[in-house]
Amino acid sequence: MRSPAADVRKAQRLARKDRRAERGRAASTILPPEGVPLNLPVASIGVRLAAQIADVLITTVAAVCLVILFSALELTRPQTIMAIAMLLFFVIRVPYYILSELAWNGQTLGKRFLKIKVVAHNGGSLSTHALVLRNLMKEAEIFLPGTLLLTLDQESPVASWIALAWVAMAFAIPLMNPYRQRLGDILAGTHVIHLPQPILLKDLAGEAKPMTAAKPGAKGFAFLAHQLDHYGAFELQTLETLLRAQDKFMSPDVHARNRRTVATIVEKIRQKIGFADPIPPARAVEFLRSFYNAQRAHLEQRQLFGDKRADKHHAADETPQ
């Protein structure tokens, strides 16, 4: 037996988790000028760090090449080579970030590798001012404490503490807001998103008809309206995921397991909706496809009449008279 206090704590924790998930969902919505909200998931700190490291590597390699060229041409003396290397790194990287984000619409090379992108917070287009600002702040936020960390010595503990506090702040600010904005993003009014990949899978409802027609001997499955009242959109879309997985290539082991799963699901559905005829195992997938079609047509019809059914508990939500 658990104490009531533990239950309360658990409920509070769940509520907090829900609130956080809600904030996260709200953060990933952008409203373009056309007024149809788009769902663009916010890129996490890890992905952005990886993109940043890739960019630093690219600019460092460019700077090193130039330094080698300069010393081959004997333009530098050994005493000043460090200062020149610093200068070149600086001169290459500042325009690199700004120009690449301007030219590629909010993507540096590192961001392109990781398929993330800068977008304007308010759904408008990215302004030049915003891109310049967020990349100049990057100097103060990332590179300055970075170089500070590299040049620390034990004699100056104050500098070490300042550097530590600064780096901690640079990481804490993105963690504290749901958009994962760093200071430069806040100033510029931007945040970074994952680039969505449009992949159009074929329509299950569009293909099912010719398939049943291909087998003239077999009779199609027919469902009555009351048999389709049990499930909602969530179950329908779960079934969709299962049916799409049927087309993939499976190893014999996986295939056997899949057949058992499908048989169980068919049995469950039959019991729930009260479908009397037995289903031979060979026609199990076909049964699921026709059920999917009928269920989707039914639910979409209900939805058009203003009766949206999120999941199988839709009947319980309606207040009983």
Binding site: L38, N39, P196, L200, D203, A233, Q237, E240
Partner: peptide, 15 residues
């Protein structure tokens, strides 16, 4: 209620 279609359109429109 076709999840694949909704996801595709969402991504396409965003791009």
């Amino acid at each position: 209620l076709d999840k694949a279609l909704l996801e595709y359109l969402e991504a396409l429109t965003a791009r």
